[in-house]
């Protein structure tokens, strides 16, 4: 078990990026892949892509992010990679449908963001589960699927 108790920095910082680049040449960079929601955890037991059992236990003031470096030694580095959030884009037919759709998403405690006339729902589970809940809105044309994209 490898205990990881602090965030050393981020892989995008030039000094760290140089060291990671060198280590990566020798296959000595290990990756922990997390869903976006799981980056809020301060403690988690997780395996790297090379199978190392990691016990992550951070101070409550720390927050994991894409590129967080948890270990940086001559022999090995461990870096967090965050899976991108998948968003389901919905276009309401008119103002009344938009009001209803907004209420509906809120009532189901869905995480949303707004882009122009689109409501984008963060998929925290199977896409089919969300489409099943939206079936009536989609079938009668109050809303339609539009431009499902990815990214934070």
């Amino acid at each position: 078990m490898l205990r990881l108790t602090r965030i050393i920095g981020n892989a995008t910082e030039p000094a760290i990026a140089d060291r990671l680049h060198a280590l990566d040449h020798d296959g000595r960079v290990e990756t922990i892949t997390l869903d976006a929601a799981d980056t809020a955890r301060k403690r988690l037991r997780v395996a790297t892509d090379k199978g190392t059992d990691c016990a992550v236990a951070l101070a409550r003031s720390e927050r994991l992010a894409n590129g967080a470096v948890l270990l940086l030694e001559d022999a090995r580095a461990v870096v967090v990679r965050m899976r991108e959030t998948v968003w389901l884009a919905l276009a309401p037919r008119d103002m009344a449908a938009a009001l209803e759709l907004g209420y509906f998403c809120g009532n189901l405690h869905w995480r949303v963001r707004f882009e122009g006339a689109l409501v984008k729902v963060a998929l925290d589970g199977p896409r089919e589960s969300y489409l099943a809940r939206l079936a009536q809105h989609l079938e009668d044309g109050r809303a339609r699927l539009a431009d499902e994209g990815e990214g934070e």
């Binding site: 108790t5 602090r6 301060k42 403690r43 236990a57 951070l58 101070a59 409550r60 720390e62």
Partner: peptide, 16 residues
Amino acid sequence: AEAAHAAEAAASAARV
């Protein structure tokens, strides 16, 4: 500073 940080993390209780 590194040891202090590790000590702070170690002292932080797991929340379940």
